[in-house]
Deep mutational scan, measured.
Amino acid sequence: DIIVVALYDYEAIHHEDLSFQKGDQMVVLEESGEWWKARSLATRKEGYIPSNYVARVDS
């Protein structure tokens, strides 16, 4: 799995977006363009995230 960590807070604009806080970790489910589908490890919610707001966690 690709794990990313939030670099900034993000408040969902559309209902399919995923809100998150700086430091939150998410599993990337699908990478396509600038918006990635991800699942929050904390809340288990899924939605689209702006890929420029996150960084990959080296395992």
Rank of each mutant, 00 (worst) to 15 (best):
A6K: 01
H15V: 14
L7P: 00
A12L: 02
S51D: 03
V54H: 01
S51I: 08
N52L: 09
D9I: 04
E16R: 14
W35H: 07
V4L: 05
G23E: 03
D9C: 07
S19H: 04
D58V: 12
D24I: 02
Q25C: 14
S40A: 09
S59G: 14
E30C: 15
A55K: 13
K37G: 02
H14I: 05
D9L: 03
R44N: 15
S40N: 13
I13M: 11
M26P: 01
V28K: 02
T43K: 04
H15S: 14
P50D: 06
D24R: 01
R56S: 07
T43C: 05
S40R: 07
A12G: 11
L18Y: 02
D24T: 06
R39A: 07
S32G: 14
L41C: 13
G33N: 06
V4D: 00
N52W: 15
G23Q: 02
V4F: 09
A55C: 12
A6G: 06
E16Q: 12
E34P: 12
G23N: 05
V28A: 03
A12Y: 02
D1W: 14
Y48S: 05
R44W: 14
E31S: 15
K37A: 05
E11K: 12
W35N: 06
G47A: 01
Y10D: 00
A42L: 12
V4S: 02
G47W: 03
G23D: 05
E11P: 06
W36C: 09
Y8N: 06
S32Y: 14
L29D: 03
I49D: 01
E16K: 10
E16S: 12
D17I: 07
A42W: 06
A42S: 12
T43E: 05
S19K: 04
R39C: 08
A42V: 14
S19L: 02
F20I: 03
S51L: 06
G47R: 00
K45Q: 12
R39K: 09
R44P: 05
V28E: 00
Y8R: 14
E46Y: 07
D9F: 04
R56W: 09
R56I: 12
V54R: 00
T43F: 03
Y53L: 13
K37R: 14
N52K: 13
D1C: 15
F20K: 00
H15G: 11
V27G: 02
G23S: 03
D9W: 04
T43W: 03
A55D: 07
E11M: 12
R44D: 13
W35D: 03
F20L: 03
A42Y: 08
I2R: 11
V4M: 05
D1I: 14
S32N: 13
F20A: 01
L7D: 01
K22H: 05
E31N: 15
S59T: 13
L29P: 00
S51H: 10
